[in-house]
Simulated scan of single mutants.
Amino acid sequence: MATIESYMLETPEKMNVIIEQASELFSEVKKAPVKRIILTGSGTSYHSGLQMSQQMQALLKMDVRAMYPFEISETTFLDDNEHTLVVGISQGGSSYSTYNAMKLAKEQGCMTASMAGAEGAFIDEVADYVLTVACGEELAGAKTKGFYCTKLNLLLLALSIGSESGQVSQEVFDQKVAEAKESAKHFKDVFEVSEKWIEANQDALKEIKDIRITGPASLYGDILESALKLLETMRCPVTGYEFEEFIHGIYNAINEQSTVFILDNGSEPRSEKMQEVLSGWSDTIYLFTNYESENANLVLPTVKNQDMLTFNFIIPLQLMCAKIPTLRGVDPSTPKDPQFHMKLGSKKFNK
C-alpha cells in the first residue's frame, strides 16, 4: 500500500504532467466571461484555495476569494452572478458540502467548475467546467500530493483565464510556468534535507504533546494545512497562526510541553527573536528558513521565487507526518475511523 511518503515523492512528476495538460484542460473555461472567482472546499481543499487566492487575484486583477462551503449562502451572490465562477474543490470529489455550495451557486446564476483529484467525481455532476486535478490516486487519509497539485491547477487556471482576457501577457505566463517547473525540481532536495533533519531529531519529535505553527501571511494557507496534517497524523492538539496573529495572545499558552515551528522566508525580521524568547519557555522551538542563518534549526534549499515557495516550504512538516506517527504507534496513512464520513453522511462514498 502506498504511503504519505511515497505520494509526496510522486509530486514533482505529477506537477509536470499537470503543466503539460493545462492547455487542453482550461481550453473552455478560459473563454468564460469571468469577473469574480470564489474557491470553495473543506480542509485541505480550502487551504489550497486560500493559499493561491491572493496570487490569482494579483494576476487577474479581479476579486478571488476562498470560502468554506458553510460560509456560502444566497447572500454570497447578490450581484453580477452571471460573471461569477465558483470553483468547488474536493480531493476525493465526494464532499456533500462542496457539492451543495456549487449547486446553490448554480441556482443563483453563477458559473461552476469542479476540481477533484479523479475523473467522474460526484462534484462534477453540478459543474459547468470539469477541471480535474491530474495528480493520480491518493488513498492515504492525509493528503499531500493532492494539495500541491491542486494549488498548481489553480495557478494555471488563473494564468489561462488571464492570458485569454489579455490581463496576463505571454511573457508573464511563460515566466510563471517556468517558475512552477523550477519549484518542482527543488522538491526532492528539500525532501532529502528534511528527511535527514527528522531522523536526527526523531527522539524529541516522537514525544510531542502540543504543536503551534507560525509564519508569514504569504504562507498562511500552507500553515493551516501543516497544522491539519500534523493534527490528523500525530493526533495531538495542533494550531497554525500567521506571525502577527501569534503575537496577539497565542504566545501565552506556550509552556515546557509546547513545540513551536516557526517558518521564515526572510520576510519577518522578528522570527529569530521569537525563537529566542520562546526557547526560554520550551526546549522544542524550531526555526525553519530558506536562507542561511546560524539560528535556524533547518535551512531548506527551496526555489528562490517567493510566489513558488508554496510548493516547497512545508515539505518537512508533511514528511514529519509520514515518519513520526509510526514511532507513536499510529499508522498515519489510515484515518482513525475509515468509516467516519459514512457514519456522519458527509461524503457520497468513502475513499
Rank of each mutant, 00 (worst) to 15 (best):
V130D: 05
N201R: 13
L231G: 15
L152W: 05
T75D: 08
V87Y: 04
E107Q: 14
T259H: 12
T150S: 08
S163L: 12
K35L: 08
N312A: 02
T326Y: 10
Q54P: 03
L317H: 01
D128A: 02
F349L: 11
N312L: 01
P325V: 07
G136H: 08
F311T: 03
H83F: 04
T98H: 04
V29I: 09
S258I: 08
L159S: 02
L85A: 06
Y291I: 00
E164V: 01
F261H: 11
F243G: 04
A105F: 09
G329R: 03
P33L: 02
Y7M: 09
S45M: 04
I4F: 07
E182L: 13
E5M: 12
G117N: 05
L230T: 06
A22R: 14
H341E: 09
Q108E: 15
I123C: 12
L159V: 04
R36N: 06
Y96T: 01
E13G: 05
G162K: 05
H248D: 11
L159K: 07
F246D: 08
L300R: 00
E245H: 13
T76Q: 03
I89W: 02
K143E: 00
L154H: 10
I262V: 03
K103H: 11
C149A: 06
L327N: 04
F340Y: 15
D124I: 03
R270V: 01
S333L: 03
E24D: 15
E207W: 03
L152P: 10
N255M: 05
K31G: 00
L309K: 10
E199A: 10
V86I: 09
E199Y: 14
P332M: 13
G146L: 02
A101V: 06
E225G: 05
Y68C: 04
L60Q: 07
I72S: 06
T289Q: 03
M342C: 09
